[in-house]
Simulated scan of single mutants.
Amino acid sequence: MSHALLPFALFAFAASISPGPTNLLILAHAARRGWRASLAPVLAACAAAAGIVLVVGLGLSDWLLGQPQVQRWLGWLGVAWLSWLAVQMLRSASAPLRQAHAPTFGPGAAAGLQLLNPKVWWMAVAVIGVFASPTLPVWLLAMVFLLVALPCMAAWAWLGASSARWLQTPGALRWFNRSLAGLLLASAWFSLW
């Protein structure tokens, strides 16, 4: 195996555990729906991110880097969707956690978010540019990324589910949702710079 596998695994860990739009939404979803209900979105988001690494490594990065308009369009589309999600969080800031009609963050939305998340695309381009080599092929990078990302994102879900105990009061829940919405907006808009 390549000597670059450990540095890549550390990079994948840092990219996966750091706060970002998907991690924040998984956290909020787990606080509302529980850890088990968040496992399918976690798996879908991680698989989609690993798929993006694979697709970028198979040649999309060359095309994408040559298309600044497409990059800009994807960035703005992602920011618009994340901003809409943040507004939804603000609107439900003090709604009870276990509300029957509360919005869910299902596997399709989690995977779709990865397609629009600028952080994921830039991470994938960096992965391929820095770590891809004949001894560390693209398929292996995608697989290792998936294996590293799963426990990282599951930790965010566990943190959200664990926080549900202290979110039973309307004031704490309002503070939590407003904070997450603000962080989501910040992570979305800062990703454009």
Rank of each mutant, 00 (worst) to 15 (best):
G66L: 08
R165F: 14
L150S: 03
P96T: 11
A161D: 10
V79M: 08
G75N: 00
W84Y: 15
L64K: 09
V120R: 09
L43K: 08
A49R: 11
R72F: 13
L77V: 05
A86R: 02
T169F: 04
A49F: 11
W139T: 14
Q67H: 13
P118S: 03
A44R: 00
P96H: 09
S94A: 15
W166I: 05
V79I: 03
L116P: 10
L58A: 09
R98D: 13
G106A: 02
V70I: 12
Q88I: 12
S162M: 10
L141Q: 01
A86H: 10
V55L: 14
R165Y: 14
R72G: 09
W158A: 15
A48L: 01
A154F: 04
L82W: 05
M123S: 15
C152L: 06
V53N: 11
Q69V: 13
A50C: 00
S92Q: 14
M89A: 14
V53C: 09
Q67P: 02
P137K: 07
G78S: 06
G78Y: 01
S61P: 10
W139F: 08
W121M: 09
T135L: 06
R72E: 11
P134S: 08
G59A: 04
G59P: 07
T169E: 13
Q69P: 04
A124H: 03
A111K: 04
I52S: 14
V70D: 10
A44C: 02
F105R: 03
M143S: 12
C152M: 06
Q69T: 13
W76L: 15
A37Y: 09
A102N: 06
V56A: 14
L115E: 01
Q114R: 03
M153I: 02
V144E: 00
S61W: 03
W156Q: 00
G75S: 02
A48H: 02
P137F: 02
L116R: 09
S94F: 12
A47D: 06
M143I: 08
P151I: 00
D62F: 13
L115C: 10
A124D: 00
V120F: 05
A95G: 06
S163L: 13
V138A: 14
G75E: 00
G78A: 01
P103H: 12
P118T: 08
V120T: 15
N117A: 00
L97Q: 06
R98A: 14
L77P: 04
F145H: 02
A110G: 11
A93Q: 15
P103M: 08
W73G: 11
A100T: 08
L97A: 10
W166V: 05
S133L: 00
L159C: 13
L54C: 03
L64Q: 13
P41F: 10
G75M: 00
A142D: 05
W158G: 15
Q69D: 15
A47C: 11
P107S: 07
A102G: 08
V79E: 00
P41W: 07
S61C: 06
A80H: 04
G59H: 07
L82S: 13
M153G: 01
P103F: 11
G57Q: 04
W158Y: 13
N117F: 01
G57K: 00
V148T: 09
A50D: 03
G51P: 07
V79C: 10
T135Q: 07
V127N: 07
Q114M: 03
L85C: 14
M143Y: 07
M89K: 12
A111V: 01
L116N: 11
L141N: 05
P107T: 00
V125Q: 06
W121R: 04
